[in-house]
Deep mutational scan, measured.
Amino acid sequence: NTKMVRFKKGDSVGLRLAGGNDVGIFVAGIQEGTSAEQEGLQEGDQILKVNTQDFRGLVREDAVLYLLEIPKGEMVTILAQSRADVYRDILACGR
C-alpha cells in the first residue's frame, strides 16, 4: 500500500510532520490547496523517502529542515505508505 506522489514545490511543501526516530515520519496535517493535497497525501501517511533522502530513522527536525531546503519550483517526489493505525498510536503516546 505504498504510493508515490510527485509535484513542483510551491512556497512550501504543505505538510505538517509528526513522529521521528524509531517510529518514522508521518503526515500530521496537509495545507489545503497544496500540490501535496491534490496528489493524494493524507494525514497518517508515513513518509518513507523524499527525492533521494530516506526518511526512515530521521528525527522530525531533520525531516522538516530537508523539506524546507528544497528550493521553490523544484520537483518533489515522495514515497509514502498509509499507516493510519500506527499514526493513531503515535498520537496517543504524544509523540
Rank of each mutant, 00 (worst) to 15 (best):
35 S>I: 14
42 Q>L: 09
68 L>V: 11
1 N>D: 10
2 T>L: 14
41 L>Q: 04
14 G>W: 01
87 Y>N: 12
66 Y>D: 00
40 G>Q: 11
88 R>V: 06
7 F>K: 09
61 E>R: 08
42 Q>I: 09
6 R>A: 05
8 K>Y: 12
9 K>I: 03
41 L>E: 01
56 R>Q: 09
35 S>L: 12
71 P>S: 05
10 G>I: 06
49 K>C: 08
23 V>H: 09
25 I>K: 01
56 R>E: 10
36 A>Y: 10
34 T>P: 04
87 Y>S: 10
81 Q>E: 11
57 G>I: 03
29 G>H: 11
84 A>R: 13
50 V>M: 06
16 R>V: 12
34 T>E: 07
14 G>N: 04
7 F>T: 00
44 G>K: 01
40 G>H: 02
29 G>T: 06
66 Y>C: 08
55 F>N: 00
41 L>N: 04
27 V>A: 05
76 V>Q: 01
92 A>E: 13
90 I>T: 11
29 G>K: 11
69 E>R: 14
84 A>S: 13
48 L>G: 00
45 D>R: 01
18 A>C: 13
1 N>S: 07
54 D>S: 09
79 L>Y: 14
29 G>C: 03
71 P>A: 04
32 E>I: 00
87 Y>Q: 12
30 I>Y: 08
35 S>G: 13
80 A>N: 02
24 G>C: 05
8 K>D: 04
65 L>H: 14
61 E>M: 05
95 R>Q: 14
41 L>P: 05
86 V>Q: 10
93 C>Y: 13
25 I>L: 06
79 L>K: 05
16 R>E: 15
69 E>L: 04
78 I>C: 05
63 A>D: 01
31 Q>W: 07
11 D>K: 07
7 F>G: 00
15 L>C: 04
17 L>Q: 06
32 E>K: 15
13 V>L: 15
21 N>H: 14
10 G>Q: 07
10 G>P: 03
62 D>K: 12
68 L>K: 15
89 D>G: 12
21 N>I: 12
40 G>C: 03
38 Q>S: 12
51 N>V: 04
29 G>E: 12
16 R>T: 15
14 G>C: 04
63 A>Q: 05
28 A>R: 07
59 V>L: 13
20 G>E: 06
7 F>V: 06
38 Q>W: 10
59 V>K: 15
37 E>W: 14
93 C>L: 12
90 I>N: 09
5 V>N: 04
79 L>S: 06
34 T>V: 10
88 R>G: 10
65 L>M: 14
